[in-house]
Design a protein around this nucleic acid. Structure first.
Lengths: 210, 210
DNA sequence: CAATTTCCATAACGACTGGTATATAATTTA
DNA sequence: TAAATTATATACCAGTCGTTATGGAAATTG
C-alpha cells in the first residue's frame, strides 16, 4: 500500500516505466489541505477534494491511498508549512517573548486572507464524528505534543526566573492553548483582524513576569 | 406548520381529538439535545436522533417539523437550561466576580459527567458545513449576543472603577470568550477537570482589577 | 515493432443521508 | 356504534457518501 511520492512533476528524475502522472502531487496535496482546513475531515467530501485538486477519484486513490491517508499527509504539510512559527517562538529568550510570538504567529496565520479561517487542529478535532476517531486521535496527539513543548519551555522559564514565585507553568501552558483555540474559534466565527489583535494585546498585557 | 407543544405527557390538560402521542415531547427534545451536543448538527443523523429519542422518523417530523427546527428547539433548551448561570454571573457586584462566576459556571457545565464534553455553540459553529449555513448563523448570533452582554457588563464595571485606567473592556470580553472557547475545545479533547480548573485558576489570577 | 506498465475517465458499488407516502392502530366526538 | 382525527410502523424515495471495477489511452522497455 506504499505510494512513492518522489514524482516531482517538475524534475522528472528517474524515468518511470508506464504512463507518467499528469498532475503535480505537491500542488494537489496543498489543494487538499485547503479543503480539509475549510471543512474539516468529514465535512470534506471526495467530490470537494477531487474538484479542488483538479484530479479524478481514481487518480486520488492511486496517488494518496484513501481519504484518511490523504488527510494525514495534508496534516503533515500543515504542520511543516503553517506551524513553523512555533519553533522560533519557543526559542524566544523570555517567557513573555514566547507568549508574544506564539500569539502573534497564530494571529497572522488565522488572519492571512489566503488561508481558511481558524486552526486545522481545532476544526478537525471538534468536527469529527465517531467513525473517524483515529483521525481525531492523530490530531489530538499533535496538539498534545505542542502543549508539551510549551510546558517544557515555560517550566524552564520559571527556573530562569521569568515568573513570580506563585506562577503555575502548567496553568499558563493551558492558558496559551486556550487563547490560541479561542482565536481559532473566533476567527472561524468571522472575527476581524482588529478584534483578534485586541484579544492578543489584552492577553499579553495580562501575561505575568518578563 | 405550527406544532402545539402543550402536550405535557403528565398533565393531560384539554383532551385532544385523535390518537394521543405515546412519547413525552420534552424528554425527546432533551435526548435530541444530547445528540446534537455530542455530534454537532450535521454529525447527528436522523437515525442517531430517533434512536436516542426513542421514536420513529415520522413521529419526529410530526412533532418537531424537520431536523433544522428540531435543532433550533434543542438550542433554545440548551440556552435556557444550561446557560442560565450566565445571567447570575453577570449580576456579580464586581468585574472579577463576573469573570469568576462565568469561568466556574462553564467549568462545571463542561465537566458535568451527565453532559457531553464542551460547548454546543462551539461544536455547532465549528462543525458546520456550507449546506447548514443558517444553523451556523443562528448559533453565531447567540454567541454574539452573549459577548455583547459581557461587554456591556464590563464597560459598566470600568465606569465603576473595577479596572485600571488602561484596561480595554472589549479586549477583556474577547478574552473571556476565548478562555471559555478554549475550555470547550480542551474539554472536547479529553482534558480532565483538574486541568481545566488549573486553566481557570490561572486566568483568574491574571484578571485585572477587582 | 510488440509487450508491459501505469494513468485517466466513466460508471457503478453498497451503505447511508434527510425526508415521505401509505397503511394500520388508537383515541375522541357525535 | 360510526365517523373523524391523529399517531405509529413499514417501507421507500432520490441523492450523496467513500471506494473500486472496468476499459481505453499513453508512456517506457525489450
Amino acid at each position: 500500500m506504499e505510494i512513492e511520492t518522489a514524482t516531482n512533476a517538475g524534475s522528472q528524475a528517474a524515468a518511470h516505466k508506464g504512463r507518467p502522472r499528469e498532475f503535480c502531487v505537491d500542488a494537489a496535496l496543498a489543494a487538499a489541505l485547503r479543503v480539509f482546513w475549510s471543512k474539516g475531515y468529514e465535512g470534506a467530501s471526495m467530490a470537494d477534494l477531487t474538484e479542488a485538486m483538479g484530479i479524478t477519484k481514481p487518480s486520488l486513490y492511486a496517488a494518496f491511498g484513501n481519504k484518511e491517508a490523504l488527510f494525514n499527509k495534508a496534516l503533515d504539510l500543515y504542520e511543516h508549512e503553517k506551524l513553523d512559527y512555533m519553533q522560533s517562538a519557543l526559542a524566544a529568550p523570555t517567557a513573555r517573548g514566547v507568549a508574544e510570538r506564539l500569539m502573534r504567529g497564530a494571529l497572522d496565520m488565522y488572519c492571512c486572507p489566503e488561508n481558511p479561517n481558524g486552526c486545522l487542529g481545532v476544526i478537525a478535532s471538534v468536527a469529527c464524528g465517531a467513525e473517524a476517531e483515529c483521525i481525531r486521535q492523530a490530531v489530538l496527539e499533535r496538539g498534545a505534543a505542542a502543549k508539551r513543548a510549551m510546558l517544557d519551555r515555560l517550566a524552564r522559564a520559571k527556573d530562569e526566573g521569568d515568573f513570580p514565585e506563585d506562577t503555575d507553568p502548567e496553568g499558563l501552558a493551558a492558558f496559551l492553548m486556550a487563547v490560541n483555540q479561542g482565536m481559532s474559534v473566533q476567527a472561524g466565527a468571522g472575527a476581524t483582524r482588529a478584534e483578534l489583535e485586541r484579544l492578543v494585546e489584552t492577553s499579553l498585557k495580562l501575561w505575568p513576569g518578563r
